[in-house]
Design a protein around this nucleic acid. Structure first.
Lengths: 138, 138
DNA sequence: AGATAAAAAGATATGGTTGTCCTTTTATGA
DNA sequence: TCATAAAAGGACAACCATATCTTTTTATCT
């Protein structure tokens, strides 16, 4: 009932990149250091974001990562499903395989509403919005 | 963003026990078989529920497990925190250590509302209610 | 009291997530 | 064109959640 490591690393990296603005590519090692993230693991996470067109990677000297889209167009839901798949939306809360539309588990119906709230929260929260909140933590 | 195995096993066992009513103790092995749960792991889960007074264990011949409280008085929140601790309530969504009341992470404020919905859902959902929903899945 | 049946407890195994290391590929700059 | 700097990729390691196995304790029945 929490974000997995890759998801939090991705979000924190994206906020970092958004705050850098257009100052050119940022090294994965720089992000790792400034955000206190494990460097060799982070670069894999950034690799996933690259593959899916969320960030743009440039290799070689002077390379690094930049945002590939406007931060207003990156929402947490997209990041979430990238790493966690459709578990939130589709998996049965009680882990019952056959839980579907017709026949479903005892919690199914009641879970719809809070699940909807979760999804809405994720979809409505953009990287731009989070990057703007500088007042908060250091 | 889903229940852990122990939590789902606990909930399904409690529903099972609630449906059995007062027909006397139910073997952990019976629950395991009928709910398709791994028997030796399940008994540890039931052990936790026993320690915390959710179920009552009786040893020896004719023993097994029964509910220790009225199913109307067992809600999902209690079960949840038993196995997952206070992560939902207290942990920072972005995994930032210092995220507290005064200074907090960028998502903190916005997370309050959907988090509240989650908590309310868990607190308002009782085992009795779930046990009653027999119409749903087999 | 002895046999049996059950949960409790502890040690050990497995698997997936997280993390590291090393090599390869690609780009830049002198 | 060669050295260097960066990401990409693959193999490996550590850790934690999950699962199993074995022994111990406790209760019941004959």
């Amino acid at each position: 009932m929490n974000f997995s490591k890759p998801v939090t690393y991705a979000i924190r990296s994206l906020i970092h990149l958004a705050r850098e603005g257009n100052k050119g590519p940022v090294l994965s090692s720089t992000i790792a250091q400034e955000e206190s993230l494990p460097a060799p693991y982070l670069i894999k996470v950034l690799g996933v974001l690259t593959t899916h067109g969320i960030v743009k990677a440039s290799r070689g000297r002077g390379g690094g990562f930049t945002l590939a889209k406007n931060p207003t167009e990156i929402n947490l839901y997209d990041i979430f499903i990238l790493f966690e798949g459709l578990a939130l939306t589709q998996d049965c809360l009680l882990g019952l395989g056959k839980c579907g539309e017709v026949k479903h588990c005892p919690i199914h119906d009641k879970w719809e509403e809070p699940k909807g709230h979760m999804e809405a929260f994720l979809k409505n929260t953009t990287i731009e919005e989070l990057a703007r909140m500088r007042d908060s933590l250091e």
